[in-house]
Every structure is written in C-alpha cells, then in structure tokens.
C-alpha cells in the first residue's frame, strides 16, 4: 500500500468553554492517497467543514480547538508544527476553496492581484512572469479573455466565474492537495456541472489530490474514488464509491441513498430519514444515530459501535449490520 498523502487519525475538535466543551468532531480518521480523491458527505452540522478546516488549522481559536489526533501530511504531523509555519503550507502544499464564491474573494482587490498574491506568498517570481502565470491559470479554468480580466474586480464576475477564479487561485502554486468545501453548493445546477467537470479536468492535468466536502453524494460520486460518511461529528462509514452505492453498511448511509431522487421514480414523496441530526455533542453514550435508526437494538443505546471492516475497502460503525455480516466483519483496531 502506498504511503498516504494525508492521514487524519482520531481527530477531535471542541468548541466553547474548556469546562463545558462541545465536541463537534470526534475520532475522525481517514486517508487520502497521492493524487487520490476522497469525499466527505454528511448533513449540515455533521462536522465535515470543521474537519476540513482543521487540516489547515484554520479553525478560529477561541472558541474552537483541536483536542486530539494527528493530521499527517507527507508524514509530518501538522498539529505538531509551530503556528508560524502553517502559512507556508497553506496555499503551497494544501489549498482550499470554499462554499461561497460570492463572498470568498476580496471585493476591493482585482482578481489578478488576488491570484498573483497566492504566487507571491510562496514563490520568488518576477512580476511579468507572475502575470503570465496568472493568465495561464485563468485560461486553464476557462475564463474567457483572461488577460483582459486581470484588472476586473470580483463583483464584475458571476458566481460560477468567481468559483473558477477561486479554483485558479487555489491551484496556482500546484498544491498536492486541494480541499474543496462544498464548492458547488451555491451554484446553479448547470454551473455546478461545469465546475465539477473543471475539477475533473484539473485533477487529470495537474495530478492534485482532492478532498471534496459535500452534502450531496451525487457530487462526490462524480469526482471521488472514496467516500467518508460523517454523522454528528463521527465517521460512520468509509468505503470506495462502488461499495457505498451498491452495498451501504451503515443505516445512515442507506437513508442518505434512499433520499436521493431518481429519474424513474414514481413515488409521490421522497424518502426522508425520520427525526433530525442531534445537536453537536449532545449524544454522550451509544450510537449517535440511535434515535433515527430503523435497525436499532438495545446495545446501540449503550455502546458506541467501533468501526467494523466489511471487506478490504469498506468500514462502517454499526452493531447490527456488522452482526448480520458476522463472519466477515472484523472490528478495526483504532
């Protein structure tokens, strides 16, 4: 097995006062191989964005703090680095794009300056060459007349175009990993498809690994090879895309899949998982999905299920399905 590019191990993030903390991310582990693409799926409040922000240590402290775990990038635990070294990694090794293209660009700087700044921060490049690089990058993400748009401001671009600018800015230093936090959520469906296409194309040309955060399994299936399903701050299932769609093992993943509308559907109402996501940190004991689960047994309320292995590429945290699959399922040592 190859050495992972990124290895998140048993990560936990807390918010609020130290005396009475709220644990919004708990025991999250996953890996991204070099040039691989992994998706994190989950509802709002499942901790997926906090997980992604933690990788770059961009959580504002206070009120947030990373209380346990390791985030290894190329074998180096980022959490051990002094704070002052993080800016060297951000943008150069790991870049990030965000959900809101409308507000994620600085309104008073030209986009040429903003993309150029990303280069200036990490590379010693003369102004003329930098300009060329910015133009080349804008062309790559499909901005028409890139040289003519350098001096434009963000408000002169549409949402889709701004997200392209964000992607250009993120990729301009050839990072090894791109974290995309809901990059298409705020966009129209057609623009969404264009941006996903673009991410596909860029992955092939630049060989960048991708961590894609989304609440939409469809979007993740489009880009990623593996998917991590998060629920209430925990990883409940992790598998390759094929297994997730064909043979989901966690009842929550099954619910998610059932609630995706299908073209040949003749149901009047879409399926929805009953109940709602528990408040962050409110589940102290047992499986966080217990209240909403159709398969629950008494044990679920008492003991948090560990990750069970369902074959080489699939793991899920459920007592019931692990019991059904019993001979094959093995508890994974943390």
């Amino acid at each position: 097995m190859t050495v992972p590019l990124l290895k998140v191990d048993n990560l936990a993030v807390e918010f609020g006062p130290k005396a009475n903390p709220i644990r919004v991310v708990d025991g999250v582990s996953f890996e991204i191989p070099p040039a691989g693409a992994v998706g994190i799926v989950g509802e709002s409040g499942s901790g997926k964005s906090i997980t992604s922000l933690s990788i770059l240590r961009l959580i504002s402290e206070p009120p947030g703090r990373i209380v346990q775990g390791r985030i290894e990038f190329n074998g180096v635990n980022l959490l051990d680095l002094p704070r002052s070294e993080m800016p060297d990694i951000r943008g150069r090794d790991i870049a990030m794009i965000f959900q809101e293209p409308m507000s994620s660009l600085n309104p008073v700087m030209t986009i040429g300056d903003q993309i150029g700044e990303a280069i200036k921060l990490h590379e010693d490049m003369p102004g003329e060459k930098r300009r060329e690089r910015v133009i080349e990058m804008l062309r790559l993400v499909g901005i028409p007349d890139p040289a003519g748009r350098l001096d434009s401001y963000p408000h002169q671009f549409s949402g889709g175009m701004r997200q392209r600018v964000m992607i250009a800015m993120a990729l301009v230093c050839n990072p090894k990993l791109l974290i995309a936090d809901e990059p298409t959520t705020a966009l129209d469906v057609t623009i969404q498809a264009q941006v996903l296409d673009l991410m596909h194309k860029l992955r092939r040309t630049l060989n960048t690994a991708v961590l894609l955060i989304s609440h939409d399994l469809g979007v993740i299936a489009d880009v990623c090879e593996r998917v991590v399903v998060m629920y209430a701050g925990r990883v409940v299932e992790e598998a390759d895309i094929r297994s997730i769609f064909r043979n989901p093992q966690h009842p929550y993943t099954r619910g998610l899949l059932q609630s995706i509308p299908k073209l040949d559907d003749d149901r009047d109402r879409l399926y929805q998982i009953p109940g709602s996501v528990p408040l962050a940190g409110s589940v102290k004991k047992g499986c966080p999905f217990y209240q909403r689960c159709s398969l629950r047994i008494d044990k679920c309320a008492q003991e948090m299920p560990p990750m069970f292995s369902f074959g080489p590429d699939q793991r899920a945290a459920c007592w019931v399905t692990a019991g059904q699959a019993d001979a094959k399922a093995k508890e994974v040592a943390l």
């Binding site: 961009l58 507000s103 800015m169």
Partner: peptide, 11 residues
C-alpha cells in the same frame, strides 16, 4: 469569507 480565503492561501 475572504479573510479566511486570505489565510487559506498562506497570507
């Protein structure tokens, strides 16, 4: 958000 963007690119 753009302040977070600035930090994310390494400023």
């Amino acid at each position: 958000d753009y302040i977070r963007t600035a930090r994310a690119k390494g400023a």
